[in-house]
Design a protein around this nucleic acid. Sequence first.
DNA 1: CTCCTTGGAATGAACGTTCATTCCGTAACT
DNA 2: AGTTACGGAATGAACGTTCATTCCAAGGAG
Lengths: 195, 195
Amino acid sequence: MAKVKPENEDSPKREAILDAALELFAELGYHGTTVPQVADKAGVGAGTLYRYFENKEALVNALFQKWKRELARQIMERFPVEQPVRTQFHEIWKRAAGFATRHPRALDFLELHHHGSYLDAASIAVEQELLIPIYAFAENAKRLQQLKEISAEILGALVWGGFMGLVNAARKGFVTLDKKTFDHAEECMWQAIRR
Amino acid sequence: MAKVKPENEDSPKREAILDAALELFAELGYHGTTVPQVADKAGVGAGTLYRYFENKEALVNALFQKWKRELARQIMERFPVEQPVRTQFHEIWKRAAGFATRHPRALDFLELHHHGSYLDAASIAVEQELLIPIYAFAENAKRLQQLKEISAEILGALVWGGFMGLVNAARKGFVTLDKKTFDHAEECMWQAIRR
DNA sequence: CTCCTTGGAATGAACGTTCATTCCGTAACT
DNA sequence: AGTTACGGAATGAACGTTCATTCCAAGGAG
């Protein structure tokens, strides 16, 4: 009755397709990846993919929203609202680092596709889910006179940019993403934004 | 007999093709841009493009090397070797900011294509032209006990990442790349790396 | 239990389209 | 006239997508 797609959520094949697409899109890009390639890697027929996603564009948007939301969730879930600002920053950095080591492909994919004319309005809107609480943290910390008197947007861009710079340097083999690296980098970026 | 290309350097058409390719590759990506699109925007026929570049891949590699070298040149030319470390850092940041405002498309392009399976060995090697002097600056500054005792690779990744984070935030409209923004960001990133 | 029917899930060869590249007639120069 | 540069139609390969067909699990009939 209500079922439009065969298995609207949670289907092993749907997950296999999303996993295969994540690896290929992250490595080859959206236009550099072919649909049969995704189907092959997922172990399904090319036609099957169209039972789960309307087309290639719908697939990349589903993938983008899935991982952007997952990133936002892992960073913001049960955020220690009552803790000191420095502790909160440590928590954000630690969670981002955890995500980077658990899902390196997902970060590559998000970074490579965060602009892209094939992203629809829903995908662009999901950006906000991560940004709003981050900006809220920055504004609050500034009110407590713990951060520099600089716009939350600039501070956020520098911190997130520094983090992604580290991830990119790791992919090129210039650094390794171990605990010591993340700890050093966290201290640097805290000095960058603290008052 | 020896002339393989009609005008091996400096030809108005060659430059027009490179300019058109820069805009399109930066916006649509390598695989998302078609050769006739580049030719149209450059105001030449599709066949003409192949008089100046062996194929699409040679074009994107020429473009990558051109702008990566130009970036390295603008940042490192007549570097104030005798000045204090803080002044040197200011100079690097100022030059990078100047490049970002003069050639925003070039930064977008380099950022979007710095991984990419179509880049050849020569393109990858050009990365070193910027990295080596930057690391030399960091090592020297550390020897003078002006920077944190953290590997030059990490410090470099954070500073460059922060800078690119700013540029990306500007493309999404979260910040504007005026002098005040760059000055604030410079102070932040100096705090990030200073001892 | 075995056989037959049924219908949704899955498939991959085939389709129309689009792409990178080539080819060749024309224009521009020497 | 001879040579080189140019443009854009032509070409074959590769793409995203479709659809006629196969597969398979479940259920009813005997």
